[in-house]
Every structure is written in structure tokens, then in C-alpha cells.
Design a protein around this nucleic acid. Structure first.
Lengths: 209, 209, 209, 209
DNA sequence: TCATAACCGAGACGGTACGTCTCGTCTTGGG
DNA sequence: CCCAAGACGAGACGTACCGTCTCGGTTATGA
């Protein structure tokens, strides 16, 4: 069927491997400029015109690679979020969770907090952006925590009849809610209290405990 | 909407007793136009120019009464959000909570869900908007639920050593998180499971712990 | 039929006499800026963006009142052409023509020459612009000359069987052709020779002359 | 089109004996694409980007061989303009002139008319283009007509004291003027009348004058 | 009852940014 | 060394809105 392939290949106007290659320097300059301008003037006042000027780049180069402002900003923010704190395996699933949540609440108190707030807000107005946020931010964190919960359940530390995604929500959502409603104080004491409540409710035989 | 009247009254700088009175018809037309256009094209693409045209109103009339787009949109949204489901007093605080949360999850599944999502998103970029959202939406709901929790604690239904605001977070935040991360399925079963976990953890029995 | 008029008037969305009036200062500033920039950088490199900046005016204000660059430039040029030299009535139609053509050839040697060249060039690419040029520049000149020719014909100075528009062409076209082909020397002697030829051919009884 | 070859050869900067030779297919494709797009969308909206795409050619290839849009367009137009109608020698110079002018006015009524209009317009904004137009279009026609006039003068058909270039202007300019002012009707009768006037004025008889 | 003060619709205005288009240059990889 | 493809910095295009500013006209007191 060689000749057929030749015919088909002729219908491809251009070979994707042809032409000048994408410039990685410009790509980085754009994301960097986006991030610093976000910090300086905020999302609302951020203009792609300004980003292009700051990055020393033509506007078309931005539009070539990102479909809209939200997508660009989301990518810039994702580069700026601290990477997910790895969850250790100390033997105690409860201890691992406590440590992870404590570290998370600390991160959200800082630069990452602002970034996550903005990512979530952006995602409300654009489905693609929402998908990127879920895939790149929330998803991995949910997966990691659920893995620990599963480990704990198997080890008998937690009840085995739990909807682990629900437990994840109970652990994460109060932090996000405080972040998103301006009361992002995240006192260590308060986070500890929350954890005690949740972990208490998922311990194996609460009545006897 | 008492607080809104307060805001409006602040815009009267000169002697309010003289001159033509504010045109209530225009005022309503503006908010109505804002809301239907929000539904049609979303917040991003909403322009005050468009609202003015749709409402049959001069642009200046909008700028006379609202300081910016967020404020206008927030007021339009607040008119559209269902009023807080009143919390009854059936004798059982737990029953009252269950009924309230069930009704809430139902509302969030509908038009109110989209509205709340957008209000929260807007609030991330503007402190005034955040304040209005907290004062007029989240605050009253928090107060009402905390009152029920307090009633339940006094009646011995719940533990008496609880941070009730924290309990409120555990009840509300998972719903909001699902709303804000696109997984707003709110299956009744799931909401029930969440409630069981939380209420289980605050019931007095495991006080032996 | 008063009520009918009332109904009809309701179908007019807006009264043309309503709203803020056009700003004459801006209008003039735009035409002035257009003209000086034309002289500085030429038609090709002239941008409405630049004109707006130079005139201290928003781009929209230009687009509100002129459909395209050619129309704007044509209007700016028309303001800059010297007004048509009035044709006197010395008693001798031939003398009047000679004086007019001499003055015209002098004008075309100067600023007006450049302006007319450009107007004609612009008109080749846009029918509206062509119409404006004919109505505002060539038409009046043609009418005036034809009137003199008619006067001369009635007075017996010229043959009476002539297509006067054709005679106008023979008088004007050679000047324009030289203007448009870069050989705009317009030596007085040459213009005189041309006039002699043409006027000779339209004198009443050439054979006896 | 000898002069064109001269221009092209000038663009060979490097040693013509080394490296790959110019691709004649691309060269023709470019000029063809230029011409058909000129007909479709006109000079103003013609982009080299579009020509390259239409010709299946890289933009650089165009820039390699033509210095600017005007030069490219002028070459494309010159390929399209009918070659100068050769002037016969019937024995009567007057007859030869009449036949040539009649054929010219016919050509200008057709496709060539539009082409000449555009060439003249382009030439107003670029000296190189003007030079090319004069050298390759107007010059040869002027030379040929002047030769016929000289022949006629020697044969006693025309006066011998004439500035023949001036007579050329009187023959050609009215046609061009009508072409350039949108009144390109060129009625045969009108052209005939013009010719009668001009030829009458240069016939030897009125030398008594 | 009428003057006055504020409101109102319309829409022009100086601006800013949009997203697209084209310019002329510059890599690429393949003749 | 040529060529098609196409990315790139630059910057103008024509449009959409911003928030402000006349306009002429309309209410509704309060003098």
C-alpha cells in the first residue's frame, strides 16, 4: 500500500518537522514576564500587550502558543507553585498525613496561597483552565493523599469502609475555603483541631477508642 | 438588602433633599440586564456598555450608582441567589443540620451554584467584593449554622468543647470545594456520607477518647 | 395622523440631535496632523495610529468620521490645494485662458503639484475617493474653463461646433500627464507652445487666419 | 522584456557561476500569483505573505528577487499589459497615427486600462517605480509616435516647426486623463474628434498663420 | 407655579488593549 | 546555494470598551 500512503502524505500540506523551530528562550521570557507582572499589577490589569513588551516578544508569539490569557496565566502560576510536598512513609499513616497537612497549610500562608487562590478563580471562567488546574494541581495531591489513606486503611489505622476521596475533601477543603474567603490565617492550632476531628472520625472503632 | 441601601446612600454626596429622585425603573433594568447577560455571555465578556444598551440606559447612569463591574455584578448575583434556607428547630439539631445541608447541596446543583462560583471567583481579585460576599452570603449562613450547633451542644447532642466555626467549615467547605473544582455532582449519597463522618466526630459518645 | 407620527417616532431608536456634539477642534487637529505627516513620511508610511497620536485624538474618532485612509488623506489634501485661480473676464476669452493656464502651470510646479499627484494616485484605488476628487477638484475647474470657452464661442473667438469638454481635456491633460510622469518641468515656453497649438485648432476659420 | 532581465541579473550579487541556480518555476509562479491576486483583491490588499502562499513559495524567495511590493507588482503588471501595438508604415503618417490611437484607446478600455491606471498610481509614490514605468511603458510609445511624426513632417504631411514631444502629449494625455479620472468611456467618436483637432492644428496648411 | 437642581438617554471623546495581519528577517531540513 | 516552511520581533490594523464629558430634555421638590 505504499502508493496509498504517498497519496495520503500529499494531503498533508506541510511536514510538521519543517520550518523554524520554537524558541525556548522566548517561551520562558513570556512565562517569567507574566508571573512578575501578575505580582505587580494583578490578573485584571495584566495585558498580553504588556507581557509581550516586558518579555521583548511579539504579541503573535504569545497567541501562537496560548489560546487566551487564562491559559497563559495558569501555566505561569503552575511554574510558581511550590512542588507538592512529598509524603513520607514513617510507618504511621496518621503521622504522615499530619505532617503533610501542616506543611501544606504553611505553604498556603505564603506565595503559593495567593497563586492557588488565583488559579481557582481563573478556573471558574474557563473549562480548559479548570481542567489544567485539576490535572496539574489538585489531581496529584488528591492521588497522593488517597494513597496514604489507603495504606493506613490496609494497616488498620483507619476504617476500611471509607470513601477516601471524601476523606480527602474533609482534609483539604477547609483549608481551601479559608484561603478563598479571606480568612487564610491557618493557625497551627486550628489546623490541628481540624485534623483531630477528621482523623478521629475515621479511626477504626471509635466507640472503643 | 439593607447593606446595599447603605452603600447607595453613601453615593449621595450633595443634599439629597433637592433635585430629581433616582429612577427605580432604570435601577432595576440595569440589574436585570446584568443578570441575563451574565447568564448569556458570562462575566468575562460582560461589558457595562452592553448592559447599558440592553437596559436602555445611559452608561453614566451605571457609573453613577456602582463603582465598578464587580460591584454591579455582585449585586445582580445576590438578587438571584436563593435566600438562605431557613433552619427550622425540629428539636433535633442533627436533623436540622441534615435538612439544611441537603437543601443547600440541592441549591448548589442549580442556578445558585453557578452564581456562588462566580461570586467567589470575583472576590479573589477585589477586596471590596470579598467583603460583600462574606457579609451578605457566607456570614449569615455561618451564623445560622453555628447557632444550631450551639443549640445542639447545649442540648447534649454534640460535644461541648468544639470550635463551632471549624465544624461549620467541615460541613460547608467540601461542598464549596466540589463546586469550585468542577466536580459539582453532589450526589445525595455522598453528601450523606460526609455528614455522617462529620457529625460522628462531634457526637458526645467518643468523648471517652 | 398625530398618533401615527408618534408611533413612527418610537421606531427611531435615537434622535440624531441627541448626544454630545462633534468636536470641531479634534476634526481640525486630525486633518492638520494628516497633512504634515504626509509631507514628512509620505502616504505609504502614514498610519492612522500615528495621525491619532500626533493629533492627540483617539483612533476611534478618526474611524468615526472617515471610512478609510484614502478618504482622510483626500480631505486633508483638498484643504491644502490652492483654491482654483478665478478666471477673469478681460473681454478676450483667449487671453483669459492663457492667463489661467499659466497660473495653473505655476501652481502645479509648487506644493499643489505634489498634492494633486497624490490625490489622483489615491483615487485609482477607491471609487469614493475618485468621486471626491472629481467633485471637489477637477469638476469645478472643468466647469469654469468650459464656461470661458462657451463665452469665447459665442463671441466668435472660437469655433462654435466644438465639444468643449474635449477642448478642456486638450488644455489640462498635457499638464497633468507631465505632472504624473515625473517630467513636471512646465517650462513657460512649452506651455505657451501647447496653448498656441490648441487655441490655433479651435479658432474659427483657420484656413484664412 | 530585455530591461527586466537586466534588473533581474542585477539581483545576482554572488558569483553566478557557483551554487544552485535560480528556480524559474518559482519566479513565474510568483508573478502569476501576484497578477491574479491583483485582479481579485487589488493592490492595497495584496500582501507578499498572500502571494507566497498562493504561489507555493517561501516569502524569502520573493524578498530575494524583488526589493519591495511595488517592484513586484510593476513587473507583474508589465507582463500583463498588451505589447505596444506596432505602428505600421502605410505611406500616410496621419493614417498610421489614427490607427495607433484607435487601437490604444481600445486597449485602455480593457484589462490594460486598469493595469496602466495602477502603474501610474504606484509610480507617484516611488521614484524607482516611476523610472521603470517611464522606461518600459511610456518611453517606447513616445519614441515610436515621435518617429512617425518625424516621418510625417519630413514627408510634408505635418508642419516642420513642431515640438514633437508636445504633439505626443496632445495625442496621449487626453486618453490618460480620461483613464485616470474615471471617465474612461473612450467613445470612438470622441477619440476621433480629438485626433481631428490635434492633427488639424499640426497640418501644414495653416502655416500661413 | 415656576425655578432649580439633579437625573436621565444618547453618544462623542481620549485612551488602552484586543486579537489579527503583514512586514522583513531568521532558522530549519532537504534538495 | 536555493528553496518551502514557518517562527520570530515589530508594529499597524480596525474594533470594543473603558470611564468621562457634553448635550437637550425630564422630573420633582421647595421657594
Amino acid at each position: 500500500m505504499l502508493f496509498l500512503e504517498r497519496i495520503i502524505s500529499l494531503t498533508f500540506i506541510s511536514d510538521p518537522a519543517t520550518g523554524r523551530r520554537r524558541n525556548a528562550v522566548s517561551h520562558d521570557a513570556i512565562l517569567d514576564a507574566t508571573y512578575v507582572m501578575l505580582e505587580e499589577i494583578g490578573f485584571d490589569k495584566l495585558s498580553l500587550e504588556g507581557v509581550a513588551a516586558r518579555a521583548g516578544v511579539g504579541k503573535a508569539t504569545i497567541y501562537r502558543w496560548w489560546p487566551n490569557k487564562s491559559a497563559l496565566v495558569m501555566e505561569a502560576l503552575l511554574r510558581a507553585v511550590e512542588p507538592m510536598p512529598a509524603i513520607g512513609d514513617s510507618g504511621s499513616a496518621r503521622g504522615d498525613l499530619e505532617e503533610h497537612i501542616a506543611r501544606l497549610s504553611q505553604l498556603l500562608r505564603g506565595k503559593s496561597g495567593r497563586v492557588v487562590r488565583e488559579m481557582i478563580a481563573l478556573a471558574q471562567f474557563d473549562d480548559d483552565t479548570m481542567r489544567i488546574f485539576n490535572d496539574s494541581y489538585l489531581g496529584p495531591r488528591r492521588a497522593a493523599l488517597v494513597a496514604v489513606l489507603k495504606r493506613g486503611a490496609l494497616a488498620g489505622e483507619f476504617r476500611s469502609d471509607l470513601d477516601l476521596n471524601l476523606v480527602f475533601d474533609l482534609l483539604y477543603a477547609p483549608l481551601l475555603q479559608r484561603l478563598l474567603t479571606g480568612s487564610a490565617d491557618f493557625e497551627e492550632r486550628q489546623v490541628k483541631a481540624q485534623l483531630d476531628l477528621v482523623l478521629g472520625s475515621i479511626s477504626p472503632t471509635p466507640a472503643l477508642q
